[in-house]
Measured scan of single mutants.
Amino acid sequence: MKMAVISEHLGLSWAELARELQFSVEDINRIRVENPNSLLEQSVALLNLWVIREGQNANMENLYTALQSIDRGEIVNMLE
């Protein structure tokens, strides 16, 4: 549920979040190519990849820290 809210509000910031979460330029470009027409779909794809990559370590605290690092703390505030 929280992931959906984050995806809805990320907009163009999804790529900046991807870099903050240590995704490569290739990963970011692949997300763009696979989801060409929708920032929402790109955001969802990023968060899904992050959960798959991090497994047990994919917790909201880590995601909140990354969001705050890219000056998107207002998204965190909405969810708390």
Rank of each mutant, 00 (worst) to 15 (best):
M1V: 13
K2I: 13
K2Q: 10
K2C: 07
K2S: 05
M3L: 15
M3I: 15
A4M: 05
A4N: 12
A4P: 03
A4F: 08
A4Q: 12
A4D: 15
V5K: 07
V5Y: 15
V5I: 06
V5L: 14
V5P: 04
V5A: 08
V5W: 14
V5S: 06
V5T: 07
S7R: 04
S7K: 02
S7C: 11
S7L: 02
E8V: 04
E8P: 08
H9A: 05
H9F: 08
H9E: 10
H9S: 01
H9D: 01
L10D: 02
L10Q: 01
L10T: 03
L10H: 00
L10W: 01
L10C: 00
L10A: 01
L10K: 04
L10M: 02
G11N: 09
G11T: 06
G11Q: 07
G11V: 02
L12M: 08
L12E: 04
L12V: 14
L12C: 15
L12R: 12
L12P: 15
S13M: 05
S13R: 05
S13P: 01
S13D: 15
S13G: 08
S13Y: 04
W14N: 01
A15V: 14
A15W: 07
A15E: 14
A15K: 08
E16C: 07
E16Q: 11
E16R: 11
E16S: 14
E16G: 13
L17W: 03
A18K: 01
A18W: 01
A18Y: 01
A18M: 01
A18R: 03
A18F: 01
R19L: 14
R19N: 06
R19E: 14
R19Y: 05
R19F: 14
R19V: 11
R19M: 13
E20V: 09
E20P: 00
L21I: 05
L21G: 00
Q22I: 07
Q22L: 10
Q22G: 11
F23V: 10
F23K: 02
F23G: 01
F23I: 13
F23R: 01
S24T: 09
S24H: 05
S24F: 01
S24D: 09
V25H: 15
V25F: 11
V25S: 13
V25M: 12
E26N: 13
E26H: 11
E26F: 06
E26D: 12
D27M: 08
D27E: 11
D27S: 10
D27Q: 11
D27R: 05
I28D: 04
I28H: 00
I28C: 09
N29M: 11
N29W: 10
N29Y: 05
N29K: 14
N29R: 13
N29H: 06
R30C: 13
R30S: 10
R30I: 06
I31V: 09
I31C: 01
I31G: 00
I31N: 00
R32D: 05
R32Y: 05
R32E: 14
R32W: 07
R32K: 07
V33F: 14
V33I: 13
V33E: 13
E34H: 05
E34A: 04
N35S: 13
N35W: 08
N35H: 14
N35R: 12
P36A: 13
P36E: 12
P36C: 12
P36D: 09
P36K: 07
P36S: 07
N37G: 09
N37F: 10
N37E: 13
N37R: 09
N37L: 09
S38C: 11
S38M: 06
S38L: 02
L39M: 11
L39H: 05
L39E: 15
L39Y: 13
L40E: 13
L40N: 06
L40H: 10
E41P: 04
E41V: 05
E41D: 13
E41T: 09
E41F: 07
E41I: 04
E41L: 08
E41G: 11
E41M: 07
E41R: 14
Q42R: 10
Q42A: 07
Q42G: 00
Q42T: 02
Q42S: 06
S43V: 02
S43I: 00
S43Y: 01
S43K: 03
S43H: 04
S43G: 13
V44W: 13
V44D: 15
V44Q: 15
V44K: 15
V44Y: 14
V44L: 13
V44P: 00
V44A: 15
A45W: 00
A45G: 08
A45Y: 04
A45T: 11
A45K: 10
A45D: 07
A45R: 10
A45H: 07
L46T: 10
L46H: 03
L46D: 00
L46P: 01
L46E: 00
L46V: 09
L46S: 01
L47I: 08
L47F: 02
L47H: 04
L47M: 14
L47G: 04
N48L: 01
N48G: 08
N48D: 15
L49F: 09
L49K: 14
L49T: 08
L49C: 11
W50P: 00
W50A: 01
W50L: 06
V51Q: 15
V51N: 09
V51L: 14
V51I: 13
R53A: 04
R53Y: 01
R53L: 00
R53I: 02
R53F: 00
R53Q: 05
R53P: 00
R53T: 03
E54C: 09
E54I: 00
E54R: 05
E54V: 05
E54N: 12
E54H: 07
E54Y: 06
E54K: 07
G55A: 08
G55R: 06
G55C: 06
G55V: 01
G55D: 11
G55M: 03
Q56T: 15
Q56K: 12
Q56M: 12
Q56D: 10
Q56I: 15
N57I: 03
N57T: 10
N57Q: 15
N57E: 15
N57V: 12
N57A: 08
N57M: 11
A58S: 11
A58C: 14
A58M: 15
A58T: 09
N59Q: 13
N59K: 13
N59W: 06
N59M: 14
M60C: 04
M60P: 08
M60E: 05
M60H: 15
E61S: 07
N62S: 11
N62E: 09
N62V: 14
N62W: 07
N62P: 07
L63C: 02
L63W: 03
L63E: 03
L63P: 02
Y64C: 08
Y64D: 02
Y64P: 02
T65G: 12
T65P: 15
T65M: 10
T65V: 10
A66S: 07
A66V: 02
A66Q: 05
A66M: 06
A66I: 04
L67H: 00
L67V: 02
L67W: 00
L67T: 00
Q68R: 12
Q68G: 10
Q68P: 02
Q68C: 08
S69Y: 10
S69G: 11
S69I: 12
S69F: 06
S69Q: 10
S69L: 09
I70G: 00
I70N: 02
I70E: 02
I70V: 09
I70M: 03
I70K: 02
I70W: 00
I70T: 03
D71H: 09
D71W: 01
D71P: 05
D71T: 06
D71G: 15
D71M: 10
D71A: 08
R72L: 04
R72D: 03
R72S: 04
R72P: 08
R72A: 03
G73T: 07
G73S: 09
G73D: 04
G73K: 07
E74K: 05
E74C: 05
E74S: 07
E74D: 15
I75R: 00
I75T: 06
I75W: 03
I75Q: 03
V76H: 05
V76A: 05
V76G: 04
N77G: 13
N77I: 09
N77Y: 08
N77T: 14
M78Y: 10
M78K: 15
M78G: 11
M78L: 13
M78Q: 12
M78N: 13
L79W: 04
L79I: 13
L79T: 09
E80H: 12
E80P: 14
